[in-house]
Simulated scan of single mutants.
Amino acid sequence: MNLFLLEDDYAIATGLCYSLENEGYSVTHASDVKQAIDIISKEKFSLYILDLTLPDGSGYDVCKEIKKQGDLPVIFLTAYDDEVNVVMGFEFGADDYISKPFRLKELLVRIKSVLRRYNNETADGVIKFKDLTVNTNEAKVYKNGEEIILTAIEYRLLLILLNNRGKVLSRTQLLENIWDVDGDFVEDNTLTVYIKRLRDKIEEEPNRPLIIKTVRGLGYMIDNG
């Protein structure tokens, strides 16, 4: 499996490349934004690991170029773990982030988790579950072949749940990954409203949901069925 690493610190990059290759990954390394964009314009990778602060720009710039090619998995490496940087990372389409300094084992777990979610998709970016079909390249959702119109938040909420099938996601976890059109966090009470609206659109019987299930006292999940 081929990974792309953008890291300007030579010591960190060398250590990561060595460790990841020992785990069976093939790693292509770039040390700045210009080099990274040149490489990713010619080749697609299974997963992208991007340092945030670079001498000629930001990992955000590279992430934007990656996402133009499709819904490809991205993990940010950052020396900052404050809320603003985390939110910005998710807004740019990142799937996860890890703060420096970090343990290699933690990064490996994050990589496997993100790849596992993406492997639930077919090669053409289509997720199928029961009578739902989600085309992630076009950001469109179909039920029994007919398109369902979802808002941006409803779509992201559905995608988060589908990419974590079989896993109970707490309200806090969901709230950390969705925001409204102004970039503001969705409030806890509002999440209930969005879950209801989404169920109204995708469930046969919204009051007896078979797709998005409530796990009382814990959160919500879509099972592996």
Rank of each mutant, 00 (worst) to 15 (best):
L169G: 15
D82P: 06
V109F: 11
R156K: 13
I202C: 02
K201C: 00
R116K: 15
D180L: 05
G166I: 05
K100Q: 07
V168I: 15
A79I: 04
R171D: 12
V168Q: 14
R116L: 13
E106N: 12
T151W: 01
I153R: 09
L169F: 09
G166W: 08
I178N: 02
Q69R: 04
R103M: 13
Y118P: 05
N177W: 05
D96H: 09
K105L: 10
T190F: 03
Y80I: 04
E138V: 06
K196C: 01
G93H: 02
T172R: 15
K201R: 03
F90E: 11
A79H: 03
G183Q: 07
A123C: 09
N163I: 02
E138F: 14
K140E: 03
I202V: 04
P73V: 03
L169Q: 14
D81Y: 09
L174E: 04
R156H: 13
V134P: 15
V87S: 14
Y194I: 00
N120S: 11
L169T: 08
E83C: 08
L159P: 04
T122I: 10
K128V: 06
N177P: 09
V134A: 14
D200Y: 02
D82E: 10
L115E: 13
L191F: 02
D180V: 06
A123F: 09
K201F: 01
N119R: 11
Q69P: 04
R171V: 06
K112M: 05
I75D: 09
V86T: 12
F90D: 11
D200T: 00
G93W: 01
E83A: 12
A152N: 12
G166Q: 07
R165H: 13
L159T: 14
W179M: 05
D200N: 06
K143V: 00
I127H: 03
D82R: 07
V74E: 03
E106R: 13
S113R: 13
S113I: 13
F129E: 03
Y80F: 10
V141G: 02
L115Q: 10
G183S: 09
S170T: 13
F129G: 01
T172S: 14
I195M: 06
E121G: 08
R103C: 10
E146K: 05
I149P: 00
L162N: 07
A123T: 13
L157A: 10
V114E: 15
R110A: 11
V134I: 15
L169A: 13
W179L: 02
E187H: 08
G183F: 07
